[in-house]
Simulated scan of single mutants.
Amino acid sequence: MSPTSFTELPVVDITALRTGRPEERAHTVAQLGRAARETGFLYLSGHGIDPALFDRLLDAAKAFFAQPVEEKMACWIGKSSNHRGYVPEGEEVFAGATADRKEAFDLSLELPDATGPLLGPNQWPALSGFREPVTAWYDAVLALGHTLFGGFAEALGLPRDAFAPYLTRPTSQLRLIHYPYDPTAEDRPGIGAHTDYECFTLLRPTAPGLEVMNGAGEWIDAPPLDDCFVVNTGDLLELWTNGEFTATSHRVRKVTEERYSFPLFCTVDHDTRVTPLPAFTGPGRPARPGVVAGEHLYAQTVQTFRYLGRRLADGETTLPPGALPLSSFGQEARHAPRS
């Protein structure tokens, strides 16, 4: 396998990150590092999360999305000041893509004492039996994400707790995404190619559709594996490592079957300044410009959500200084036509 030729994703069992002896942990860390450098995507097993938590999450998502649209719109994301709530079909459009038959519910860390475009409390629907299983899943996967931060740190030759100072109140977002059954769907791109804006993503999908771009610019299928997460590194780890880890571009092609997808976008505290670590800079390897984690996330979000685009056009919000355009990271950026 190489950065230009992979045709499938590696599977990494991280049991040793939770319970293993030092030599077992070292082996797992080496596998994580190899996957992050060579593919930017991997399947993660041995995560230790109770399967019942996922079953309850899926039941809650099905109950929410089965409601009439007017019930779901009662917590429309555009009613919030911090980008949390229901995302109807057509609200989110990636560059170069058409609107998908896709709806979502977005939430993040509850921060009732904080204010900002991505900070504050969640907007919850008035649906019995929804909040508790969704919160339980969020908490469990967020803890898994913190374990993985330690593994990635060691894979970079850093202390296990290197990222811990930036994980006091991370605004990691969980999305509940629903693609309804669509018998007219053709096997073609749906969600446009993009990288994830945070450090890495922990994803549990229920059906195929995800495709990953390899180093040669080819699209590789990444179907779900039983009781495994799909993990991909994002913009911030690419930046922190000055390209040592790659934010791999990916997309979702249109499929006819009903599909649910649950990504948790693991990030750091909102005000964290992310710049290349000294170990990954030097002669012939200049440091890329840094970003503020929360500002980068907000800038990318404004460019993909229509309600925020309208606020931007009306002067109700602004892009942070130095905001990057979409697709500034990952393989898609490397293979984009030069004008």
Rank of each mutant, 00 (worst) to 15 (best):
L107N: 06
G120T: 06
E92D: 04
R84E: 03
L118H: 07
G90R: 03
P117F: 00
G120H: 01
G90T: 02
P117V: 00
E92K: 13
G90M: 00
A104L: 05
P117E: 01
G120S: 09
K79F: 09
H83Y: 14
G78T: 11
G116Q: 11
P121C: 05
L111Q: 15
A95D: 13
L107W: 03
G85A: 09
E91M: 09
E110C: 06
G90W: 04
R84H: 08
L109G: 09
E92F: 10
P121W: 03
E103M: 09
P112A: 07
K102M: 14
T115G: 07
R84P: 07
S81T: 13
K79G: 15
K79W: 06
T115A: 13
T98Q: 15
E92S: 12
R84M: 03
E103S: 06
G96L: 00
V93R: 10
Y86P: 00
V93Q: 10
F105C: 05
N122Q: 03
Y86A: 02
S108M: 09
S81W: 05
P112S: 05
S108T: 13
A114Y: 06
G116F: 00
G120N: 08
E91C: 04
N122T: 07
P112Q: 05
R84L: 04
L119S: 14
L109K: 07
N122H: 04
T115H: 06
G78C: 13
E89R: 14
L109M: 07
K79R: 15
P117I: 00
G85W: 11
T98D: 15
G116W: 03
A97V: 02
L109S: 07
S108K: 15
V93F: 00
T115R: 12
N82R: 11
N122W: 04
S108H: 12
A97G: 05
R84T: 08
G96Y: 01
G85N: 12
G78Y: 09
S80W: 12
V87W: 13
R84Y: 02
E92Q: 14
A97D: 08
E103R: 03
G78P: 12
P88M: 04
H83D: 08
R101V: 06
R101H: 14
E89A: 15
L109R: 11
G78M: 13
N122P: 03
G85P: 11
E89I: 14
G120C: 06
P112V: 04
K79P: 07
L109H: 05
F94W: 10
D106E: 13
D106M: 10
E103P: 03
L118M: 12
N82T: 06
G120I: 09
R101P: 06
T115I: 06
G116A: 09
A97M: 01
A114Q: 15
H83N: 14
E89W: 10
T115W: 00
P121Y: 05
L111E: 15
D106G: 10
V93T: 06
N122L: 07
D106T: 11
P88C: 10
S80V: 07
D106K: 11
V93N: 02
T115F: 01
T98H: 14
V87K: 12
